[in-house]
Amino acid sequence: MAKKNPPPTEANSPATEPNDTLLSQLIGYALRRAQLKVAQNLVEQLNPFDLRPAQFSALLIIEASPGLMQTDLAGILAIEPPQVVTLLNKLEKLGLAVRVRCKPDKRSYGIFLSKAGETLLKQLKEIAAASDRDATAALSDGERQQLLQLLHKIYRRDDQATG
């Protein structure tokens, strides 16, 4: 005989965030919750391509700066250089990017999209834009633009203060 699950009670129901707590007033907490929702949506869309959001981000950065050095890519992605090596190994394995040894400094490599990477990236851009719109569907176009402006204001201020 199959064991039945007990009906939901306060003790075994899924946890929900109480509305009147300090957490509900912290921007960092709200940003993290929103980021998780948006990122999970993108993860699901990229899964059929065997890609993760960081790899997709790297493809976009490489497209914008062909020949970019690995250390520069690490800085832009805010990850450690060894993580960039792993990320690029995956992109090369998928045939989406290539590392080309630089002539002046034989230890350095410029990163470029392959033809397959350029082709796939066109499709991935459309998928990412649709995923982003889907994840933020609760916002009007104006609210979405306002949110983007406010988020840019937060992180670009930090960039300007340190740069």
Rank of each mutant, 00 (worst) to 15 (best):
M69K: 13
M69N: 08
Q70R: 10
T71P: 00
D72A: 12
D72C: 11
L73H: 05
A74V: 13
I76G: 03
I76T: 13
I76Q: 13
L77Y: 06
L77I: 09
I79G: 13
I79W: 12
I79R: 12
E80Y: 00
P81H: 03
P82K: 13
V84H: 09
V84E: 06
V84F: 09
V84S: 07
V84R: 00
V85I: 01
V85D: 09
V85T: 14
T86D: 07
T86C: 07
L87P: 00
L87H: 08
L87N: 14
L88W: 10
N89A: 10
N89P: 02
N89R: 14
N89D: 09
K90A: 09
L91G: 06
E92N: 03
K93A: 12
L94I: 00
L94V: 10
G95P: 08
L96V: 09
L96A: 09
V98Q: 10
V98T: 08
V98N: 13
R99P: 02
R99T: 03
K103C: 05
P104H: 01
D105P: 13
D105W: 11
K106N: 13
K106D: 14
K106S: 08
K106E: 13
R107D: 13
R107W: 14
R107K: 15
S108E: 14
Y109M: 05
Y109L: 00
G110N: 06
G110C: 12
I111S: 04
I111V: 14
F112Q: 00
S114F: 01
S114T: 11
K115C: 04
A116E: 15
A116H: 07
T119E: 09
T119M: 07
L121A: 15
L121D: 15
L121S: 15
K122I: 12
K122D: 07
K122M: 06
L124K: 01
I127G: 03
I127H: 05
A130V: 06
A130N: 11
A130D: 10
A130F: 15
S131H: 02
S131N: 08
S131E: 05
D132F: 00
D132R: 06
T136S: 12
T136M: 07
T136K: 04
A137S: 15
A138M: 02
A138P: 04
L139D: 01
L139W: 01
L139T: 00
S140C: 01
S140R: 03
D141A: 01
D141L: 03
G142L: 04
G142T: 04
E143G: 07
